[in-house]
Design a protein around this nucleic acid. Structure first.
Lengths: 245, 245
DNA sequence: TGCAAGGTAATTGTCCGACAATTAAAACAA
DNA sequence: TTGTTTTAATTGTCGGACAATTACCTTGCA
């Protein structure tokens, strides 16, 4: 295990990097045990505290898990889809909120990705996923629903669409794009009229998926993108006017 | 700043979580300074070592940066696209390598995503990006090129295609899918014949992007997916036969 | 006054030693 | 054999110490 001497980096960062490289390169396999903290501090010739800080960095990236007691230690962790989802969503959300991504850009990306998996969803959708989509549509029709709940239901529906493609890699990649949009979407106040419109398009979309009509699904997603964009622009315009007055 | 008492988690993990929540929820803005390690250890009533381990976890996720000296400390970090790319690619690569994702699944996801951005690339491609694609095609035609270099060039070409869509959110999401495929692709030995075939499709694809012909680009990507899949299946079959004999 | 040199204090980085908590395995007793 | 106790290894937490770095203040000088 080599240690690249980048003189400006912290020791714990250097050690974390060398261990991370070993894991990513496949030098260590899943569930393999790392040397104990004492052994690592000997190998790298640093104190145990420094080794611990390095290990905490790796734990934060879900690369290792630790276990106390005899025959405990740090083990290479199998990265599950669920954890990867979580990290991806957190990162995507922060990226959008910290970098002032325009509503248009995020919207365009989201619907482009969804259109990419619509044909596969048409092929492979299960009754289960159709039922989920119908249930969310029903929820969205409830009059007392808050804007936040409406958005959450929207995300759930689109998530079902993505999962219907039955491609875990695709689901993983798209989860970030769709869920990271939610804070942006939450800024929109949905009138009764706009909800009705959206529910209508959602129904057409679900019908298309059920009928396995990819062209129709694509059309519905285009309509949804256009309408969402209109709503978003209205909100932005209203906000700009307000702050300008 | 609240601390949820999850009794089974480490103290440093709990503290990291509470600070992370504060950042993600927007309670702390970019470049805002966190309390010093001494103050945090007072607030959370733990030792400084424990606070430091928590801060290292956050640093590993690029949520904070630290600075030494007077008026130094830990500051909320603006997550840049570049860092997010890096994290995303690392995570995606690990996810694929650790979970035995089939070549078919990864391939399908990759080309579905690329087809999603092809229409936008047709609209917005710049001469620069076309030149990059042409240059990579030229590289791929060199006879002495190693399989690894051929794959790297392949990734570079597709990366140019994605960037041509001029949507940073899309680029970010797709970078993981495309680059994480490279280790899988590297397993394939490309014969002179198959390279010729791939270069031909790449040329058709680039022509379509230049001519802004979305349908033709879509067709080329479908052809590329089908051919890549064939190559991958051959490799897997050969490998299976070898291990079986 | 203005400026430069040097000192000071605050803060993170690293090290050390100690003890608590946990857990698997070994040793032991019935 | 089976159940219990002891033991050893390992991570988790604490406290203190010092080094390294850096912004800020003080002091002396022109």
């Amino acid at each position: 295990m080599k240690i690249e001497t980048d003189p400006k980096a912290d020791l714990s960062a250097q050690i974390a990097k060398s261990i991370r490289d070993a894991i990513v390169n496949g030098d260590m396999i899943v569930d393999e045990r790392l040397p104990s903290e004492a052994e690592l501090s000997d190998q790298f010739d640093v104190s145990r505290s420094t080794v611990r800080e390095a290990l905490k960095r790796l734990a934060a990236q879900s690369l290792i898990r630790t276990q106390r007691g005899a025959s405990g230690g740090a083990f290479v962790r199998r990265l599950s889809y669920e954890e990867a989802y979580g990290q991806h969503i957190t990162t995507s959300t922060l990226l959008l909120s910290m970098n002032a991504v325009s509503f248009e850009t995020a919207c365009e990306a989201r619907y482009a990705l969804e259109r990419a998996c619509a044909p596969m969803a048409c092929d492979r959708r299960t009754p289960d996923q159709l039922a989920t989509m119908r249930a969310e549509i029903h929820r969205q029709s409830q009059p007392g629903l808050s804007d936040e709940s409406f958005c959450a239901s929207d995300v759930a529906l689109h998530r079902a669409l993505v999962d219907a493609a039955h491609n875990p890699v695709l689901s993983y990649q798209l989860a970030g794009a769709v869920e990271a949009m939610q804070p942006l979407m939450n800024m929109i106040t949905f009138t009764a009229r706009s909800r009705e419109e959206i529910v209508g398009i959602h129904s057409r979309l679900t019908d298309a998926i059920e009928a396995q009509d990819a062209a129709k699904a694509d059309h519905a997603l285009h309509a949804l993108e256009a309408y969402t964009l209109t709503l978003g622009r209205d909100v932005m315009a209203a906000r700009a006017q307000k702050s300008g007055s």
